Simulated assay, not measured.
Amino acid sequence: MNAFLDAVVHPLQYAFFQKGLLVATLSGALLGLTGVYITLRGMSYIGHGLSHSIFGGFAASQLISAEFFLWGAGVWGVMSALAIITVTRRHRIGADAAIGVVTTASFALGIALLTRFGATGPSFESALFGSILGISQGQIFMLYAVAALTVAMVFFGYRSLLFATFDPDVAAVSGVSVLATDIMLMVVLSLNILSTLNVVGVTLVAAMLVIPPVTARMLTDSFAATLVLATVIGALSGAIGMYLSYAAEVPSGTMIVLIGAVAFTVALATAGRRRRLRAAKVPAVAVS
Rank of each mutant, 00 (worst) to 15 (best):
S177M: 03
S177V: 14
A180R: 15
A180G: 11
D182T: 04
M184S: 15
L185K: 10
L185W: 11
L185Q: 08
L185M: 14
L185E: 10
L185Y: 09
V187Y: 02
V188E: 03
L189V: 13
S190F: 09
L191T: 12
L191D: 13
N192P: 12
I193S: 08
I193R: 14
S195Y: 06
T196S: 15
T196M: 01
L197W: 13
L197A: 04
L197Q: 10
V199P: 06
G201H: 05
G201E: 03
G201R: 00
V202M: 14
V202C: 07
T203R: 12
T203G: 09
L204R: 03
A206I: 01
V210A: 02
V210N: 02
I211L: 04
P213N: 08
V214R: 03
T215C: 06
T215G: 08
A216Q: 11
R217I: 03
M218G: 02
M218E: 06
L219F: 00
L219A: 04
T220E: 05
D221M: 13
S222Y: 10
F223A: 04
A225N: 12
T226W: 13
L227F: 10
V228C: 02
V228H: 02
V228W: 10
A230Y: 13
A230S: 06
T231L: 09
T231C: 11
I233C: 07
G234Y: 02
G234I: 00
A235D: 01
A235C: 04
L236C: 00
S237P: 00
A239W: 09
Y243N: 13
Y243W: 07
L244C: 15
L244T: 08
S245T: 13
S245P: 13
